[in-house]
Simulated scan of single mutants.
Amino acid sequence: MVATSAVAVEPDEVMADSAKEARARDLSRELRCMVCQNQSIDDSEAPLARDLRLLVRERIAAGDSDAQVMDFLVARYGEFVLLKPRLNSHTWLLWFLTPLALAGGGIALWIHGRRRAQSRAGQDAALLSLTPEEEARLNQLIAAEQASEK
């Protein structure tokens, strides 16, 4: 009872050499189906995905390394063909925008919290401070209390 990871690979696509087939499957999992866009060509049943799977196997059979196969496909279809884009000058924003946005949001929340705490402390201090009239009245009450105790 062995389950395959993808049903899209058809029997006529499978290479005779199991090591080369494993390489082809590994590479196919890293390549985006240009039709489905959220699936690898290994998982997609689209005709273009089949063509790409066959192209990968053809390049492997010709003796290309994994890097050469990937470079060939990127040169032919662009970086979009990769499910995980490479880190270079064109994709650094894609890789770092989310962590930078999260860090910026965290800093903004921290600053907001500090300002709010300082504002609340200032309001509390304002509530605790008495006006001159209130101080005079308080002093009168304290004096009257002390006079009645004697």
Rank of each mutant, 00 (worst) to 15 (best):
74 V>S: 01
123 Q>F: 10
49 A>I: 00
125 A>S: 09
95 W>R: 07
17 D>Q: 10
65 S>F: 08
108 A>R: 12
29 R>G: 10
83 L>P: 03
32 R>C: 00
55 L>R: 04
20 K>G: 05
48 L>H: 05
28 S>T: 04
35 V>P: 00
40 S>T: 05
33 C>M: 02
98 T>W: 13
80 F>V: 13
20 K>M: 10
52 L>E: 01
92 W>E: 11
9 V>C: 08
26 D>K: 03
46 A>R: 07
79 E>Q: 14
86 R>Y: 02
82 L>T: 04
109 L>S: 05
111 I>D: 02
117 A>S: 15
89 S>K: 15
125 A>G: 07
44 S>M: 04
112 H>L: 06
11 P>Q: 04
58 E>W: 07
89 S>D: 15
14 V>A: 09
99 P>D: 13
69 V>Y: 01
63 G>E: 06
75 A>I: 09
70 M>Q: 01
26 D>R: 03
115 R>A: 06
121 A>W: 08
35 V>T: 04
28 S>V: 00
91 T>E: 04
45 E>G: 04
70 M>T: 00
33 C>V: 02
49 A>T: 01
115 R>G: 06
37 Q>T: 02
103 A>T: 15
37 Q>E: 03
121 A>N: 12
65 S>I: 06
44 S>F: 05
93 L>H: 13
23 R>W: 08
107 I>C: 08
96 F>W: 13
98 T>R: 13
84 K>V: 12
12 D>C: 08
62 A>N: 15
62 A>G: 15
113 G>T: 02
112 H>P: 01
24 A>V: 04
34 M>E: 14
97 L>H: 15
117 A>L: 14
29 R>M: 07
38 N>R: 04
96 F>I: 07
